[in-house]
């Protein structure tokens, strides 16, 4: 039995189809990521799996239980951290955790070992009202509350959105520790670079899954040679590459521009020659391996061509 399995799930809000027939499964103890921008349908999937929303069509099972028929059973065994901070702002840190523990018929002490690495960082502030916590601390408190009943499956909807790079890093470290407890984790994020933190990912766009695999294998589906190009003036470089007759794709990427070429056999020298002929001094052209974000954009473009 897979902890999570979804078959051909559909969900519409009025005329808008948010989830368009999605299927995926998650194995036990895996850290599985739903990666995609706002509007991809990530939150709708979370709401279906946490039994807060019924699918219009298709089926979703959590721990072998049906999200519609067995919703009460499912709720006992899963933890959920919604995208929006939804703890009680006017209860203290400790009161929030104690409240969630009592709702699930347990106590903080009974499951302290599981939340200890996270909750211990909050303990100096345990009397502070949840509403007065910083963003990073709210996130830790929400995770503590989602874990207090020792769930078998943990659902985390965009836990790192709007959070700075340091807190994001720390949060992923916490998730890796939880994985060692054999908790199955489904997590969503709009940050492509976080895909690499997951065992498997589904890349999502516009209610559909573009690709589903390990992050390494997903990037292997990018067949073209990718080039990273750097010059003094990035805007000018983008324009020049766009007007190059052999250009296939041109995307800014940090300090570089990522480029693919239509030709079968192309050398760095060819691209360099072209740029120099346009008056660019000392361009850097390096062959590189694509990452998840390159691949995601490639898949998005293919999707558009099919339509």
């Amino acid at each position: 039995m897979k902890p999570i399995s979804v078959h051909h799930a559909h969900k519409s809000y009025g005329a808008k189809e948010a989830v368009k027939g999605i299927s995926f499964e998650v194995d036990e103890g895996l850290l599985f990521g739903l990666i995609g921008p706002d509007g991809a349908g990530k939150t709708t999937i979370f709401r279906i799996l946490t039994t807060l929303l019924k699918p219009d069509k298709g089926e979703a099972l959590v721990l072998g239980l049906d999200v519609v028929d067995d919703y009460r059973q499912i709720r006992k065994h899963v933890g959920y951290m919604p995208g929006r901070f939804s703890l009680y702002q006017d209860l203290s840190v400790e009161e929030n955790v104690a409240f969630f523990a009592s709702v699930f018929g347990t106590t903080i002490d009974a499951n302290y070992d599981l939340i200890e690495p996270i909750y211990s960082q909050l303990e100096p502030f345990k009397d502070r009202l949840a509403g007065a916590l910083s963003g990073g601390m709210k996130q830790k408190l929400a995770l503590s509350c989602a874990l207090i009943h020792k769930p078998e499956v943990l659902f985390l909807d965009e836990p790192t959105t709007g959070v700075d790079a340091v807190s994001r890093k720390e949060f992923w470290q916490m998730l890796h520790r939880l994985k060692e407890e054999n908790i199955t984790i489904l997590v969503s994020t709009p940050y492509m670079d976080e895909a690499e933190q997951c065992d498997r990912v589904a890349l999502m766009q516009d209610g559909q899954i573009l690709s589903i695999d390990t992050p390494e294998r997903i990037t292997k589906t990018f067949h073209n040679q990718l080039w990273a190009i750097k010059t003094e003036n990035k805007y000018q470089l983008i324009q020049l590459l766009r007007s190059y007759e052999y250009a296939e794709s041109v995307q800014p990427f940090g300090e570089y521009v990522h480029y693919t070429d239509k030709r079968e056999e192309v050398q760095a020298e060819h691209i360099m020659e072209y740029l120099k002929s346009k008056g660019v001094i000392n361009p850097t052209v390096v062959a590189i391996a694509p990452d998840i974000e390159d691949t995601f954009m490639r898949l998005m473009e293919q999707e558009e061509t099919y339509e």
Partner: peptide, 9 residues
């Protein structure tokens, strides 16, 4: 924030 990678670019 939250925008897809192509639109972001």
């Amino acid at each position: 924030g939250g925008v897809d990678p192509i639109t972001r670019r």
